[in-house]
């Protein structure tokens, strides 16, 4: 990074190359014929094979009659019948509701914690900041499989430390409490896992964003008599907004698509009370023990999910396009 700065400082005229020099390069600086397309081919091929072609398959499947075991062969085209089935399925709608509440709560709580911690990082002394950073790095590196098994252990009814502590502090009814009997409580445990796992990324990214705000502005606000909230509202927030848009979008995508934390928490057999959209479509399509293997049904549901996610993605993609066009 510093090498870049030095070059720019040492060589100011190069910022605006003379027109003769441009011509000398034959316009190769930007326009280069087929080259950019050639460079994109390898990524394009991988994406086409792994995502493009299967997406087309998904659409086709969703329009075919549910062929359970016959899967892709000889299933007649039935139009939007599967979509109708999905949209008139009460389990689907209760999964949608559960997903919206669950993901919404997780996004809001993890952003609040992440932003709060990021602001705190700017106030504590260097040594405390280092301790916090190391802790966050450790948490960040824990895979979701591990964090889920770990929380299953923390919240275990028989030997779990959470029940033990709650019992000790006088909440005796929580001694040997089974957190997973009531799905709503079980989903709260899943929320703990998700928020705990999301905090490191959010805190580190947001505190990097906070560090870029010019100190003079915040001091000027203080001199002018702004309260801490006013300084945040009028100085910090506008600076942080583009970054907040990106991390919020990513959080929405991740938290809506949550799968591992619920699936593993319920030891790969989630009960209907735990069905989020992801879990329900998985159960429908794969878990034959549930009478599943309904590929067409799962496909129709998946496409509805893609469309729902698409709404959230528009702002995010537009932001990326703006950045990309600058280059």
């Amino acid at each position: 990074m510093s090498a870049v700065d030095i070059i720019e400082i040492d060589d100011p005229p190069s910022r605006n190359p003379a027109p003769t020099r441009r011509r000398l390069l034959g316009g190769a600086g930007r326009e280069a014929g087929a080259l950019p397309y050639l460079l994109l081919i390898p990524t394009g091929l991988v994406l086409a094979a792994v995502i493009g072609y299967p997406l087309v398959q998904l659409v086709i499947m969703s329009l075919e009659k549910d062929g359970s075991s016959s899967k892709f062969t000889g299933t007649p085209f039935v139009g939007f019948a599967e979509y109708q089935k999905v949209l008139s399925d009460s389990v689907f709608w209760s999964s949608v509701e559960r997903t919206v509440i669950f993901a919404g709560a997780n996004v809001i709580l993890s952003l609040l914690f992440g932003l709060g911690l990021a602001l705190l990082m700017g106030r504590v002394s260097k040594s405390v900041k280092l301790i916090l950073t190391v802790v966050l790095m450790f948490v960040w590196s824990v895979p979701t499989t591990v964090s889920t098994e770990l929380f299953r252990w923390l919240f275990d009814a028989q030997y779990g430390v959470v029940d033990y502590v709650l019992g000790k502090v006088g909440l005796g009814s929580y001694a040997q409490h089974d957190w997973f009997a009531d799905p709503n409580q079980g989903l709260q445990v899943a929320s703990f896992i998700i928020i705990w796992g999301a905090i490191p990324f959010l805190t580190v990214t947001l505190s990097a964003g906070l560090a870029q705000i010019p100190k003079e502005l915040l001091e000027a606000a203080k001199v002018d008599g702004a309260s801490a909230w006013q300084a945040f509202r009028n100085v910090t927030y506008p600076f942080l907004k583009p970054l907040l848009v990106i991390v919020t979008t990513l959080s929405v995508i991740w938290d809506t698509g949550v799968f591992n934390q619920i699936y593993i928490l319920r030891q790969t057999h989630p009960e209907p009370g735990y069905y989020t959209l992801g879990i329900y479509s998985y159960v429908k399509a794969f878990a034959t023990i549930y009478g599943g293997d309904n590929y067409s049904y799962g496909a129709a549901m998946a496409i509805i999910m893609v469309l729902l996610m698409g709404v959230f993605m528009v702002g995010y993609i537009r932001q990326l396009l703006r950045i990309g066009q600058e280059g």
């Binding site: 299967p54 998904l58 499947m61 698509g257 590929y295 993609i317 396009l321 990309g324």
Partner: peptide
């Protein structure tokens, strides 16, 4: 378009693609 395609991959829920991907 290239940016939309590459970054749009994040938008596709993995679970949605698993069944056809497995088959492909």
């Amino acid at each position: 378009l290239a940016i939309i395609i590459v970054m749009g991959v994040q938008m596709v829920p993995l679970i949605a693609l698993l069944f056809p991907l497995n088959d492909v």
